[in-house]
Amino acid sequence: MTAEPAAAVRPRNRKQLIVEAGATVFSERGYHAASMEEIAAAVGITAAALYRHFPNKYALFAECANVMVDRLVAALGEVPPDAGLADVLAAVTRVTVAHRAAGGVYRWEARYLNREDRRVLRAKFAQVVGRVADVVRREYPLPDEHLRAVAALGAIGSITMHHNTIARRRAETLLQASALRVVATDPVAARAGARLVELPARPVPRTRRSEILAAAIPLFERDGFAAVTNGMIAEAVGSVPSALYRYFPGKADILAAACLQAAGLLAQAVDHNLRGVTGPHDALAVLTATYVAYSFEHNALTSVADAEIIGLPAGLRRPLVAAQREHIAVWEQHLRQARPELDGRQARVLVHAGFGVVVEAGRRLRWQDSPEHRAAVAALLMSALDL
């Protein structure tokens, strides 16, 4: 006689498993593209069972948004108060690399969390930044310790924003060293050696299609991609919603077209500014100045793109990813020439770390564009690359 199979036992940590799976799915698919059914399947339960723990997708997302920062707060709580900067950054790096698949959720927090949930989350991040900044101030008494702290955390957190494969220990070593170099950089002293670069002028909207692109991005940045309607875009260009379909099949196509246009401007700027440059170090200085200038001038679009591209349909996302890879390949080539001890994976991870520095430092500076801010962020990026 065959024994009856034992009844399935509900794991005691089911809610934790749901949050882990949800954070990963949200990171990989984006808030709006992710579904409760998809998350439930990742846990091996039904959607009905998932709803017993979370009444809706927002409630689950709000909890997922806190996963990484709660881990960071807990990890730093275990580091002795008098520990050195290397130990503090090592704790942050271990947690971030170990949970990189779920760490990208924070990129959407400002857009999709309500005001109170956003306030709570930002207070937790401020606690992490404050702990790092305190040690930075003690060990490297230079100006703008909070700027250097958030830039270093941006270098570490960059591992959550891409899918380049690299062994965990190698990633930790690279990112911790990068962050340590960033916090040791004097952003004020960097102003004297700032490099000037040129960017192509923003296209002047001369057609209805270009007018739509120019009007849509500020709306996406202000209200969030999902909240903006075709009616809002049409009103901004003095048209009716149905007229938009003559130029774009849908709202996602507008975002993709704007991102491709911006990628083209960046590629033009890189090609122009690299002309006549000899030597990998000079080339990387030019790439850095160009990327920082581009990030300040196009911060509205880049902030929207960082949050929304991941949720675009594959057909629209593919050319954008290809353009990004082409840009990173230029960095990788010059970085490996400047630092021949790096292999391709290490170089790409460091390039993304530099981009993470720009994002977080730019946010800290509220993207207020000035030669001083550009020079400071460029110096921090160069330090992240060990140049």
Rank of each mutant, 00 (worst) to 15 (best):
Y58P: 03
E326I: 01
S178V: 08
F296Y: 15
D144H: 15
Q127A: 10
Q268D: 11
E341T: 12
T207D: 04
A42E: 13
D306N: 09
I310W: 05
E116F: 10
A376S: 13
G356E: 03
V135L: 00
Y140C: 09
L312A: 08
V240N: 11
L266Y: 06
E4H: 15
V95A: 03
V92T: 14
A262W: 06
W367M: 01
G30V: 12
V73N: 08
A62D: 10
A214H: 15
R222N: 02
L380C: 01
M1L: 06
A257Q: 12
R168L: 06
T46N: 00
T278C: 08
A322D: 13
V132Q: 07
E297I: 04
A194T: 10
V43S: 13
A167I: 10
A226V: 12
D253A: 15
D144P: 05
A171D: 01
G276I: 05
H146V: 12
R107E: 05
E63M: 06
R339N: 04
A293Q: 11
A379S: 12
V95L: 06
L274H: 09
A338Q: 01
G154N: 09
R14S: 04
E297N: 11
P340K: 03
H327A: 04
A75M: 08
V136Y: 07
W367H: 07
A269Y: 09
